[in-house]
Design a protein around this nucleic acid. Structure first.
Lengths: 231, 231, 231, 231
DNA sequence: AATGAATGAGGCTTCATTCAT
DNA sequence: GATGAATGAAGCCTCATTCAT
């Protein structure tokens, strides 16, 4: 599934990059507030800081804006995610960190993720497939981690359960955005991470108790001591 | 949060009900295929079997159609759900059934649920709040069940975890529709129910092993394996 | 080559006919003055006496307007032409009348013919082919007449010359419109008919002198006696 | 009617000439394929081998391009025509050659002539008048030839017929391009010249039979049939 | 002289909604 | 109550032209 080609009348690749970043940034704001369909190309142009004519020098159609957003969001998620990863961790600690970091990135890029999440369906087939492919590649990352833990006996789930577990992790991240109208009233991002990861880990039958429950009992994801230090 | 008033120029309440059912049925099909924004009122009228003029005798605006759909879907979900419930069950068996039935209803009303799920955000404030309220009332149903089990010591989760657990159940149901592009390739509805409920129950630290794994398989964690017969 | 289908959202065929006549009439005026490309759909709608929305209830695209014009012009030409024909004439008198009537109709429908003539090339392939087909069918009408005269020995041109002769007749008619900027300063429609037909007939080597020169000498296209009676 | 001034920001007249030749050449190709209105200035610039900015260094507006094309085409037609003329010929032979050469030039510059012919109407008043003036000057050339023959008794048409005869010659040339969709299927340029000139000459009542029919054929009307060798 | 990014007026078309029949 | 023709605001996109580099 190759990246879709978004046509541009401008030759300077550097400029294309800059302008498209402006476009994506503006579009995320607007799509968040008014949705993709509720946002006009003129608004995107204006919010991007240039004219409608200029906007169309960098895209071929309105849908391209949505595609650029989705594409950029995935890349940004991946990039920030990698920054948060500590490659020295292993085992369940690593699994924990993978998930925790993912949640944190989602929280950081809430608006972006939400847009991508809610508007993806408005993409045409070609672009949609590409975006779904990216989604799957994220799932694969989790799957690799899960399988590693599973092979080492650190978690205990059936083989056929693995894929589902990965979906659950991903969706748990998305939930933080698409149910934010209620869930962010009930939890902070930190408490959400703790409880959600606890439920996930118990669901995986993780063999190390420190991730299975709330810090208040045996502090796992906890500010003070406890011997774990992710936050 | 009161039901939003959808204006109609027609007096006969019976007729209004019939026509609106037609509208909702047609709209679900269309919204599924083309999305709310991609569907025109003309199309809805035609698919409903009457003219555009008549359509507007039973609604006040296009948004009302979406509202009617969302409203109807919740009601239909509740109705079908109740039909599946066996009031004689208790404890974890009841909890299991509540979730399982919910998943089955979602599967049955896939298109409806998906539309409601994806297009809800296009509702205006008043209607949106009403719909979100309904969503919360569903969560409350789960919460009641969860708390009952918890009080009886059948599951062991922190008080502050309860709400999250309910969200997870709800979202697990929605997942079956909004990730169906991938998840329904990997699982049948029955296998999905089994594995998903197993992960949830383990996440709740349910005290009865028989729900924690796939019934047909040699229990990895489960000791007894007593026959349960939901599937 | 079938008539191209022009989509309409309106069901009443009678109304479609009326409205399209309005559209064609308005479009001819506008296209004459400003050309097809220089005319906006809004202008056509306004000149037709209804809104832009209504215009699009009767056509699918701007090009359809041009197509409707071309189609209607041919029909109108044929209709008026037939009205002018006296079926009792024979031989060269008939040939003369066919051409003369054709010129008169072209003069009568000058604007229409000119538009069709100048803007045809803007039609897309399907419509263009249809229109060219109609043009050919007009040529065929002349060809039939020419061949009849030729077989009877009334004119004397080579077989391979016949087709060219027909093109010349047709183009002589068109000329009256597309060179009107100069030719209508030099000739009245009547004098044009006389001289042009005279040159054509001599070109055909017609065997009857009375059509070969100007009426001022031996009145040819003349109301009264003189022995010829076409008008 | 003076040549319209086409503004240029460039001083070097030599360069202006070169660049404009490039522009005209590119524009003819494009206008032929897509029409004047269907061609963008960007396309003209690109096909000319330079940037849009540079294009506007040599013209003032898009219309100037069309004007340059029309102007150049006339000049090119005249130039090539003169090259084909044999100043030693006289009488009907000269008239024949004038027409024949004209037809051949039109055939040679088909695309150019067609563009000029079809798009002229898109010129604004000033430029249009200039172009029409050029058209008239071509007509005058024919008129001079016709009158010479007429005075010498070589052809026999009324005084008032002369102008029409010239129009017919001119239009016969244009026909070869604007009806090429059908006429070039039926005739080669050579056969077209022969038959068309034969019909014209008979129309003029030319006194020399050798031009009145196809040379290769047994004269139907012609008595002597002496070999003429233009083709 | 050459470049090409920026501009924005304006074109075509759609579609939710109204209202006379 | 039902119909469907009429409306026009508003959206997407193009492209001739300018101007800073």
């Amino acid at each position: 599934m190759k990246k879709k080609n978004v046509p541009s009348l401008v030759k300077d690749e550097r400029l294309i990059k800059t302008r498209r970043e402006q476009i994506v940034k503006a579009a995320v704001q607007l799509f968040n507030k008014k949705g993709y369909h509720g946002t006009t190309t003129r608004e995107v142009a204006q919010a991007s800081g240039f004219s409608i004519g200029t906007l169309y020098e960098y895209i071929g159609s309105k849908e391209d804006i949505l595609y650029l957003v989705c594409d950029a969001v995935y890349d940004e998620v991946m990039e920030k995610w990698e920054q948060l990863m500590d490659e020295n961790l292993q085992g369940l600690e690593r699994l924990h960190q993978v998930i925790y970091s993912y949640f944190k990135v989602v929280d950081d890029l809430q608006n972006e993720v939400l847009v991508m999440y809610q508007e993806t369906k408005s993409l045409s087939n070609e672009a949609l497939n590409y975006v779904l492919q990216k989604e799957l590649s994220m799932k694969d990352m989790f799957e690799k981690e899960i399988r590693t833990c599973r092979e080492r006996g650190l978690i205990e789930i059936e083989d056929r359960e693995v894929s589902l577990a990965c979906h659950n992790i991903l969706v748990s991240g998305h939930m933080w955005t698409f149910r934010r109208w209620i869930i962010q009233k009930e939890y902070t991002i930190e408490s959400y991470c703790e409880w959600q990861i606890a439920q996930l880990f118990r669901g995986f039958q993780a063999k190390d108790g420190k991730f299975l429950h709330h810090s208040g009992v045996t502090p796992a994801i906890n500010k003070d001591g406890g011997g774990n230090g992710w936050n």
